[in-house]
Every structure is written in C-alpha cells, then in structure tokens.
Design a protein around this nucleic acid. Structure first.
Lengths: 416, 416
DNA sequence: TCTTGTTAGTATGAGGCTCGCACAAACATT
DNA sequence: AATGTTTGTGCGAGCCTCATACTAACAAGA
C-alpha cells in the first residue's frame, strides 16, 4: 500500500523556454520507452478531458489496458496535484468497492490565455477544468508604436499572472492576424501593421520564463472547442469563423491540423465563384466576398432594410422573425453562402462536424439550422454519414479558452 | 557475434484475414512496448523506402537513435529475407569499416496489385523495390452479372498469384468507383452498377487467404506516388486526377488522409462557380464541370477545333505547339480551370506539393507548367512557401503501383 | 451477523524495447 | 607496422506495460 513518490513531471521542458518547446520526435525519429510514458500520460489526460471525472478502472476499460497501468500513470499526477480523487461514488447493485473518480485539481497549475487584437490585449487564467479567472484587458493608444504595444501586453499579462497561485503551465496567444507558429512570431496584422514581425512568443518566454505559444484566431477557437467546448472528445471537426473576415481551422484524425509553418485553413480565400466579386485580397470570387457581414450589409442596403450598416446575424434573425420584408430571404441567402464553403470543406476533408463562431453565433439555433440545412442539401448523400453543427462560445470567451487550449494541445498531444 | 534467430514477423496478422486487418490501437487506447517495436520497424522500413539503400549506421544517425537499436530492428527482417545486405561500399577518406547498405530483397514477399474498372480487371505482382511483374487482365462480358465479374476477377488474380514465388503480403485493389474502406466493399461504380455493394475484400480474403484492401482510384494513385513515385519521402502532398471525372486524395502529416469510412477527397464536387453549369451529380458549379475532358471537348467544339471529340491534353498541347487557332487560349483556360480547384485545396490544407494524374499527364511538362503558373497566381503569397508539381506515372502503371501501395501503407503506417 | 459475490485499487515479477558502453572487424593514412 | 576512423555486435541497465495475486470496500441473502 505504500508508494514511493514519483519524479515524473507533467509540463513542458522548462530548461528550453526560449527554444523549441517540443523536445519530441518528428520526421524520421523512432520511439522509445520513455516516449511511451509521455504519450500515454497525454492520452489518459485527454480521455479525462473528453469524458469528465472518471475512475481508474473505467479509464483502464476504455483504453483496453490493465488497471495497474492506469494507476502507474495517474499516481504521479495525483502527487503533483494535477489530478485529485473525488468522493467515492456508490457502486451498482452488483456491489463492489466504490470507485474514486479522478478529475483536474483546482490547485493544478493554470494556463495563461491571451487574445491579441489590433486594438487591445486581453489575458486571463484558465484552470484545467475550463474556468476563467483574473481577466484583464488593456487597450492600445491610438497609432501605437511597437513599444507601446509591448508595454500594454506586459502590463496586462503581469496583472493576470499575479493572481496565479501556482506557476502557469504556459501562455497561449490567439492572434487576430497571420502567425508563424514555428517561430512564434506575428507575420501580419492587417489593421495594425506595426505588429508585423513582432516576435511575441520569444518576448513572453523571456519575460516570464514560461513556454509561450501563438496561433491565429480561428485555430485557437478550434482548440478551445476541442478541450473546453462543443468539440470535446471529437476526433474530426472543423471550426468556422465568420464576421468581418472568414476563417477556419481543422482537427483531423485526433490532431490539430497545421500546414507548413501554420498555413492551411485560409478558407476565406477559396474560390466559390470564379470571376465573381472582387475580394479584399485582390482576387475574384473568394468565399469571403459572399459570406461575411460586409456582404450582408451591402445586400441589406440593396433591398432597403433599416439601418443596413448595423445588420448582423442577430438582427437579421430578429427581423425575419418579425416578418420584415426581404429579411427571411436574405437570411436564407446568407446561410446558403456560408454553407457553400462548408460544403466544399466537407467534400474535401469530411470532418462531418462543424462548430460555428463569430457573427453567426448571434443568430442562434435559427441561423445554425439554416446553414445546416443548406450544407446537407449541397453535399451529395452518403459522403461519410451525418453532418452536424454546433454553436460556439461567445466571442471573447471562446478566444481566451482557445488560447489556453493551444498550450493544452501541446501538452496532451505528444506528437508521435 | 552469434545471434539467435528472431521470431518477429513482418506481415499483417494472418489469423485475422476476414476480420479487421489492423489489430491496432485506435481511439483512446494506449501504447505498449510491443507497439513501439511494430511502429519503429515500420518507420525504419519507411525511411528505407524514402532514401533507397542505406546502412544501419546511416539509418541510426537519421533517426537519432543508437546503432544497436537499428541492428535489433533490422536483423529479423534480414532473417525473413525482407531485406538484404548489399555489397560493401567504400568508406570515405577518413577510413573506417565499409558500410553494408540494406535494401529490399528481390526474394521478399511481393504484393498483389489489382485495378478494377467498370469494364475489366487488371492484376500484377509488385516487389517492395517497386518492379511490376506477372501482369494479367481480363475483360468483362457485355452486361455482366456479378457472377461473371467474380469469375473474371478470380481468373485474373489466380494467374498472377501463380507466378508468385512466395506468398504475397496482401492484395490491394484500386477501384474505379466509391468504396467503403472499412467494410472493404464497393459502394457504387457508376458505369457498372451491378458491382454496387460487392464485398470484394472479403471475397478475396476468403478465396486466397490473404489480407485484401480496397480503396478508390485517386487514393490508390496517391499511395503509389508516396511509396514508388514522385511523392516518395513526402510528408504532405496531394494527388489530383483529371479525366472524364475529377478526383483527388491527400497525404497529410505523414499519413494517408481518409475521412469517415473513406469520405474526403471528393474534390470533383466542390463548388467553384455558385450557380454555374449543371453537373452530372445534379448540382451546379462543381469543379468537375470545368476541369474534365468533357468540358474540354465542349469548348473545342465551340471554337471549331478539328475532331473535338478526340481532344485531350496531349492533342491540345500538340495543337497549341503547332499554332492551331484558339488552341493556345484553350490550353490556358483549361489549365486555369484545373488550377482553381488546386488553389482551393492549397488554401484549405496547404499540402504544397501536387502530383498530377490522368489526362493532364499526356500534356507533359507544358501542361503541368501551365497549371502550376495559374495555381501560383491564384494563391496569395506567403501561404506556406513554395508550391511544386510533378507528373505521375502513366495511367495503368500508376494505378497498379498504387494498389500495391495500399497494402504497404497498411504495413508501414502503424497507426499510433 | 456471517457468508458469498463483485468491483476498485495495489504490489510484484516477467517480458519488450531502447540506450550507453565496450569491443571486434575492416578500412585509410602515415 | 602503428594510428585513427567507422561499422556492426554483445551485454547490462532503465523504462514501460502486462498478468497474477492480493487487500479493501461495498451489496445481497441466509
């Protein structure tokens, strides 16, 4: 019954804060026994995330392994207070020793989530159970220099980190712009070009001695959904963000999909209308030209809807419900425009499940159902089964959870 | 210096011929030491495929592991005559013991590749080094019944298998139609509906006692490219097939990507022209409506090109070279139409490398360059680096190698 | 109250795998 | 002939999972 305390740790390599966060196999490297340890630990934690509080025996059954294996994996995590044992749950009628469900300890090391937008920075702490705290935000001054932005980020982050009772596992950043995930730097933020080339990851790592991960906003939304939201437990799904711009991200085969240095998922600029309307990117017929609130505003103006500059999914659904002339048709057309791109995605990688983010969230179930109906009509049948949809968290919360999710993905998804 | 012969084997589980071929981890299962063995064996063989003949020491260096590890993995494979040691190669000026490169033995168990088309079946043997032999084909009678087709397949396969000196590792089938890869059955062959629902995999497994794997034609082309062709050693790339229809397949993150039960890669029916021409699938504006030889024939007729019903990429390139009126513009337009769909694929998953198959192969480098130029113009810059293109093998050879590649993928890609 | 059956979690030894080290074999150079 | 370099092979150590056996904690029934 006595156990030696283990020396195993659950964290990223802290010696290597500024370098490559992952000291992992990739390319042609082989596996070793110690990697099996890390990988299995990650998988057990992942199952726990997906299922909620679960006993060792149950975990062993689901994984198809021996109970002792789970005990061996889980015990060090209990010692480090990553996990805690919950109250015993009553056994079934068959009797037996009551199971002690395992769950993430509120005293576990938190994750720092950051959302970096062109005009402001938001930070918070996220527990492994998915609760937010210590939210702070700092707006940038007008026409900021990069030093102003650095200062704002540092002030915001420091406030949040001051609330952490234990050292955070890392800092995840959702960036409203293009990101080089390998270099952990910002490539371009359209509305704030001063940030272009900003090596935010290295700055945070140096300043706070924590691993820092960047990714662009839609991808953060996806991992947020995966660990804390509607994508929980999914092996394949996509997140689609609509708003002023259009973005998306893919979770394929149980892994966040990133193309080379973070390319891929630039769905807004796929063609759906060769030689169609001109897009902000200079090309013609991008999906973005027909499935953003910009398009919605133009159409609303054209058919004479009240206050067309303030139209969005929420108002459109309300107007359609109230029977405003043309609103119902416009809603249907907007939904179809969004659906066209999703149908293409379905035909291409068949994730079969979509979490909707951004503007359409305001439209609620009515908007989601309208989109879903069109997608199902646009995709030939028997292309891999049912297609389902979910509505994401509200905007800021989704992005902050997602930012934290970036760190979790790195910790849990030992890339074999 | 003495070694005990090993009992390890390199093959799929032969006890389980009719059931699920892979007795492997999936979903929430954990890793074990024996899986590390299988996985590493697969990885070593994969690097060997990618690099050509390579010594143990070199393999160890590339994988970043101890030489003894490679020796331990490789020795059983030598015992089983999967691999052979080549002639010693001269050491460098620094001296040292000459290295013995390892390569696939010509006496290794071959793979049976099969291509099943609406009107005929082709079979052959493929060595691990990628050489074809024992090619046979049998045409089906007119208006065949399923029994006729079964008989033809059996006759063809038996002839090929009779030439095998050792028992093949398995039978891979490239099917010109929709396939359920899990059930190893044919879902639908448009031009031969009699095959719909045909459980070919189980039939072959029962009849020949060999593992049998089915996949649809474009996906077979992809794995053929991956193991034996232009995609050798690639971690991310796509295969695109154009002809009477349009198809594609994806290799992402070092793995063949299949959506649920083999969906995904139905690229022909992605929208590139909302409300465009009507497609054979009944919807409007599919990529297939503007990037197949059907479109090419219609255009050729419209602009008065000679013998428009016999136009294809090969003739079009020849006509354009000869200065036939309109041919040059038509070629450019055709290339752009093909490029549109590829650009969408690049924006979505960014494979960055494309192997072209089917009709465009006949157009050679000129056609490929035309397509490449358009894709590069259509994809916004800095979306993940250079995009490159290659031309696949000729049609039958590509499909047969690909069919064999299906079996190899299963053997090498131990799915962790 | 005592016995039987069931389930949860733990200790222990066996077996697989990779790793580091030491060593023999086979070359080039001086 | 001596020295240095590289390849490939035993051998024991360390890490991991697995099967087995055992204790703890409950329900149901006599």
């Amino acid at each position: 019954m006595e156990r030696e305390p283990s020396t195993q740790r659950w964290s990223m390599d802290e010696e290597d804060v500024s370098g490559d966060v992952r000291m992992v196999p990739h390319g042609r490297s082989l596996l070793s026994s110690s990697m099996v340890g890390s990988a299995n630990r990650g998988r057990v934690l992942q199952t726990l995330f997906d299922l909620g509080p679960t006993s060792r025996a149950e975990l062993a059954r689901l994984a198809g392994v021996n109970r002792t294996t789970i005990s061996g994996i889980v015990q060090p995590l209990l010692d480090q207070q990553v996990l805690v044992e919950g109250e015993p749950i009553r056994p079934s009628e068959a009797g037996g020793k009551p199971a002690r469900p395992l769950w993430f300890s509120p005293d576990a090391r938190p994750i720092c989530g950051m959302m970096l937008m062109p005009d402001a920075v938001h930070t918070c702490l996220v527990t492994l159970a998915g609760t937010l705290s210590a939210e702070h935000s700092v707006r940038f001054p007008d026409n900021p220099k990069i030093a102003d932005i650095e200062r704002a980020i540092e002030r915001c982050t420091s406030r949040t980190l001051a609330s952490a009772r234990r050292e955070p596992l890392g800092i995840g950043v959702a960036v409203g712009g293009m990101v080089d995930t390998d270099r952990r730097a910002i490539i371009a933020v359209n509305l704030a070009p001063v940030m272009n080339g900003f090596e935010l990851g290295d700055m945070l790592a140096r300043r706070y001695g924590l691993p820092a991960l960047l990714d662009h906003h839609p991808r953060a939304l996806l991992v947020g959904d995966r660990w804390f939201g509607k994508g929980r437990g999914m092996q394949n799904f996509a997140a689609v963000y609509t708003g002023e711009v259009l973005g998306g991200a893919l979770y394929l085969g149980g892994h966040l999909y990133r193309g080379r240095s973070g390319a891929g998922g630039e769905l807004g600029h796929t063609f759906v209308q060769v030689d169609g309307e001109i897009c902000s990117c200079g090309r013609r017929g991008c999906w973005e030209t027909i499935a953003t609130v910009g398009w919605l505003r133009r159409q609303a103006r054209a058919i004479g809807i009240d206050a067309p500059d303030e139209i969005n999914s929420r108002r459109l659904v309300a107007l359609a419900g109230a029977g405003a002339p043309g609103a119902r048709d416009l809603l249907d057309l907007y939904a179809r425009n969004v659906a066209v791109g999703i149908a293409n995605l379905q035909q291409t990688v068949a994730p079969n499940f979509y979490v909707l983010h951004g503007d359409v969230v305001g439209g609620g179930e009515i908007m989601a159902e309208a989109i879903a109906g069109h997608v199902r009509a646009l995709v030939p049948s028997r292309s891999g089964g049912e297609i389902s949809f979910a509505i994401g968290e509200t905007e800021d919360r989704a992005a902050l959870l997602g930012a934290a999710g970036l760190v979790l993905s790195e910790l849990l998804q030992f890339p074999l």
